[in-house]
Design a protein around this nucleic acid. Structure first.
Lengths: 249, 249
DNA sequence: GAGTGGTCTAGACCACACG
DNA sequence: GTGTGGTCTAGACCACTCA
């Protein structure tokens, strides 16, 4: 159907890098978008156009476009066409990692001080959040983490025993609750909230900071597919901790 | 090559919803992962297995698997196979939206108080961050945003004039810098940092809070493909603002 | 109806890992 | 060599939008 001459040199001015065709098409479109060749909202080349331009099959072009769409760079409407996306928000992947791995990856020393490690009975609010009956047993740990001897996080955590029966039997000076729970449960969903406020009096004392020092507080709840696993309150001295991220299409 | 009998009823126990085949395959694998049928690290069905099981072509299976991989649910190694992924971190998309849209979407009233809106000359640090010469002109705005009359954000922003020549000519009580810049530049990259600390004395005064109140501070830099656009310092009273997010595969 | 994207097929060749 | 995933082809049918 296509004339055989097409294989000569139809490819646009993108460097003919040693990539797969669908990658070259993506690069061509991506760089065009970056240069403003297609301002936001403008219609871009159709699949047929690109098939002709690159001399590939439609499936190849389609894959390139589908991936760009899932990356949020373009918008496609059946029956209408492909359009340069409106970047109307800054989105970035926020990753909350195991604090031990985090500190080690900075080449620093991690230590933990275990203040509470026991079974308790759940009050009304806690029972609701962990999906257990009021008065049922729950596991509770309160651990302060240090980076090179300086307090970095106060971790107050409740665990649903059904999710990790052996939770309390670990030595949390040698591993972390996050690690244990990742390994013994199949995490499926997580919620978090980030806020800035003063720590409680008790937390300030444990962290060795003034009660008026601002803290970055992360509250996180995780779930398996069927039940809550744990709820954690992570308190960080504001002067020693921040979250960073980057967004690039 | 395949026996014709396969089309009878080979599809696994997933509800035969009115979806496209690749979607049904994704759902089948996703629910299996959620139920722990394939614990992390375990080898999953190969493409050939799924082709036989669902009676579809390999391209269809391949698409389902490729998408699951890009979602981080599975890991694929050429020559080895497909494996259930280790979920070893909690990742979530953090979205930073235009504050006006944010407040309106909560059904509340947004107002802005413009304290600074002028051209200034760049000092050394600022010039470096905005990619302009020392002493060059930069645009500066300082705006306090209110939600239902309560201060929510103090926005201190410097803009590279090359990125948005008309920046200063807008009425920022009727639109927001974020909106203007999104519309007049082609954002391509963004960096942010989130921290908890006290505001400066000036910022506390503008926000009407105590100088010792904890604040959530976001510092954001955005770039086009070729140059910095703007750098903003967004100060939020900790008691009135938090970031929330969720992560589900 | 013409143009667009959404999806699928039944093959194919390749690179890679393993025994 | 066998089994795996990585990629591509040259068609096809469908649903949608707009004139």
């Amino acid at each position: 159907m296509m004339d055989p001459a097409k294989s000569a040199a139809p490819v646009p001015s993108v460097s003919d890098s040693p990539k797969a065709p669908f990658t070259r098409i993506k690069l061509f479109l991506k760089s065009g978008l970056a240069e403003g060749r297609w301002p936001p909202g403008i219609q871009m080349p159709s699949e047929a156009d690109l098939v002709a331009q690159f001399g590939v099959s439609r499936m190849t072009v389609n894959r390139a476009l589908r991936e760009l769409q899932s990356e949020g760079l373009i918008q496609r409407v059946q029956g209408l066409g492909t359009f340069a996306a409106q970047l109307d928000r800054v989105a970035s992947t926020l990753t909350i990692r195991d604090i031990h791995a985090e500190i080690e990856s900075r080449g620093h020393r991690h230590e933990a001080n275990v203040h509470v490690q026991r079974e308790e009975t759940a009050g009304t609010a806690l029972a609701a959040q962990l999906g257990v009956a009021v008065g049922a047993a729950v596991f509770h740990t309160l651990i302060v983490h240090y980076e090179n001897g300086v307090s970095l996080q106060c971790e107050d955590r409740y665990v649903n025993p059904e999710a990790s029966l052996a939770y309390l039997q670990h030595d949390f000076t040698r591993t972390t609750p996050t690690r244990v729970l990742f390994d013994s449960t199949s995490l499926w969903r997580a919620q978090y909230q980030i806020e800035s406020m003063c720590a409680t009096r008790e937390e300030s004392r444990l962290l060795g900071i003034a009660a008026t020092d601002p803290c970055l507080i992360i509250t996180r709840r995780t779930f398996t597919a069927v039940q809550p696993i744990t709820i954690a309150r992570l308190v960080h001295p504001g002067s020693r901790f921040n979250l960073q991220g980057e967004f690039t299409p």
